[in-house]
């Protein structure tokens, strides 16, 4: 009888242990999985989320003293589509921003004969010549 009691107590402990492991495993899975609601009403977002499919990139063109160049400053993609365009004196500062599709990875800025690719992962761009 004593042995049966001990056996039952052991089984209960093993069961508790397994349940605990299962819970931990479940929590771990939830944390590592992207939430993927299948109905619109299942979606929950933060107050800050704007539902925008754009991202904003701030552009800084620092003034270059004694630089006489005047040229068109352009931001284009690899296909030549223009995201921004203006006449820009090299000795004048310009600050602005552009909106680009959120899936876009890189763009190119052009100033006179200078052409440089930049990553759109950063929210800001400083133009260097």
């Amino acid at each position: 009888m004593k042995n049966i009691k001990l056996l039952l107590a052991g089984l209960i402990l093993v069961q508790l242990g397994l349940t605990s492991c299962k819970k931990l495993e479940l929590e771990k899975t939830e944390k590592n999985t992207i939430s993927d609601p299948k109905k619109f009403t299942e979606i929950k977002t933060s107050k800050e989320f704007t539902w925008s499919t754009n991202k904003t990139i701030a552009i800084d063109f620092p003034a270059r003293a004694n630089d006489a160049r005047v040229a068109v400053l352009k931001v284009v993609d690899a296909s030549g589509n223009v995201y921004f365009k203006k006449l820009q004196k090299a000795n004048e500062k310009f600050v602005g921003s552009i909106q680009v599709p959120s899936h876009m990875k890189s763009l190119i800025y052009v100033y006179g004969g200078i052409q440089k690719e930049f990553s759109t992962q950063s929210p800001s761009l400083t133009i260097t010549l």
Binding site: I34, S35, D36, F40, I43, T45, S46, S52, T53, H103
Partner: peptide, 24 residues
């Protein structure tokens, strides 16, 4: 339901726009 037509939209929105930024 919009999420049934655009299959990555729900995950994009639920991630506050960080996952599947190309859902469209």
């Amino acid at each position: 339901d919009f999420t049934e037509a655009f299959l990555k939209f729900g995950a994009w929105a639920a991630s506050n726009g960080t996952a599947y930024t190309d859902w469209y």
